[in-house]
């Protein structure tokens, strides 16, 4: 059938298909490849006291431009342990917060999917609602909650659980709290979508075949929400890896994240070439999970067909 139609469709169909394929690539070119090329070019340049603060620039002519580019800045990154420590620490923080977000988000998504039909839009709304407030304000609100004079400590002191305020603000704990809080909806929504689609009779079938509730959850619910879990984890992990605002507002001087290092390179050192090199490497690190994520999405789409 399909074959026949394609033949009969001829040129207009082919044109339409071509357009359909081209548009996302143009999008990719304009919003990803071109900016990346610019950043990559800067990463091969040298710092200069000028506007813009690097050399060579396009004004020097193409030949001068190409001949002066080198990988010096990348070599520099390998010479100072600050950078790989920051990358590793970012990976660690992103990984731990992704797991924490999953642990918090999954039960919420599960409860939403199990809630009575008429409640679900409201619950969904409640999950999305925080997006209506500025991200910065929401993160800043945690300063008020977590500081030693903050709500949390006052509450704990009032309960008598602690005698001296807990030091949470300006530690990695606060960064985890911030990331989990901020990215929770990104975890909940794909998992909810997966669980919502889950046919309830599958759970009954599992129980019927001898599973306890827990076993049915583990053997059926979890594997069938796997795609949601993977999507959610990537949606949290990828932005968390390069996160700057949360560690700088909630983290302490000991919080080492590549986003902060990038900011320092750019604003404190005013060294655009090194900052760009840091960004290029960050991007290369991100591409691996992004490609994995894409492949997962494609596989899922194929399976649903």
């Amino acid at each position: 059938m399909g074959q026949l139609e394609r033949k009969r469709g001829g040129a207009p169909v082919a044109m339409r298909r071509l357009t359909l394929i081209t548009v996302p690539y143009l999008w990719l070119l304009a919003l990803f490849l071109i900016p990346f090329a610019i950043v990559f070019k800067i990463s091969l340049s040298d710092i200069a006291l000028a506007i813009p603060p690097y050399t060579p620039t396009m004004e020097d002519g193409l030949w001068a431009l190409l001949s002066q580019l080198d990988f010096e800045n990348f070599v520099f990154l390998t010479e100072d342990d600050l950078y790989w420590k920051a990358y590793l620490s970012s990976l660690q923080i992103a990984l731990i917060s992704t797991v924490l977000t999953l642990l918090v988000g999954y039960p919420m998504a599960y409860a939403m999917a199990r809630a009575p039909e008429e409640w679900r839009p409201t619950l969904m709304m409640l999950v999305i609602l925080p997006f209506w407030t500025s991200f910065l304000i929401r993160v800043y609100a945690w300063v008020g909650i977590l500081s030693s004079e903050g709500f949390l400590n006052q509450f704990l002191l009032w309960l008598g659980i602690v005698d001296t305020p807990l030091k949470i603000l300006n530690t990695n704990t606060a960064v985890y709290v911030g990331i989990v809080y901020t990215y929770l909806p990104f975890m909940i929504l794909p998992i909810y979508a997966a669980l919502d689609r889950l046919d309830g009779s599958l759970i009954e079938a599992a129980e019927d075949l001898g599973c306890s509730r827990l076993e049915a959850f583990w053997l059926v619910t979890i594997p069938l929400s796997k795609n949601g879990i993977i999507a959610g984890c990537f949606l949290v992990f990828i932005p968390a890896l390069g996160e700057f605002v949360i560690p700088s507002l909630l983290g302490g001087s000991g919080t080492l994240m590549i986003g902060k290092v990038l900011f320092e390179e750019f604003f404190a050192n005013r060294d655009w070439p090194v900052a760009s090199a840091v960004a290029v490497i960050l991007l290369l690190i991100l591409i691996v999970p992004i490609v994995l994520f894409q492949r997962n999405e494609q596989r899922q789409a194929k399976a649903e067909k």
Binding site: L202, A205, E207, L209, G210, P223, K226
Partner: peptide, 29 residues
Amino acid sequence: PPNKRAVNMMFQSYALFPHLSVWDNVAFG
């Protein structure tokens, strides 16, 4: 409870586990 009964059910929707092969579906119980 259902998992403690010598009773099995064939569901109207079949309720086959989509993530498992035919073999694994049959072996599940």
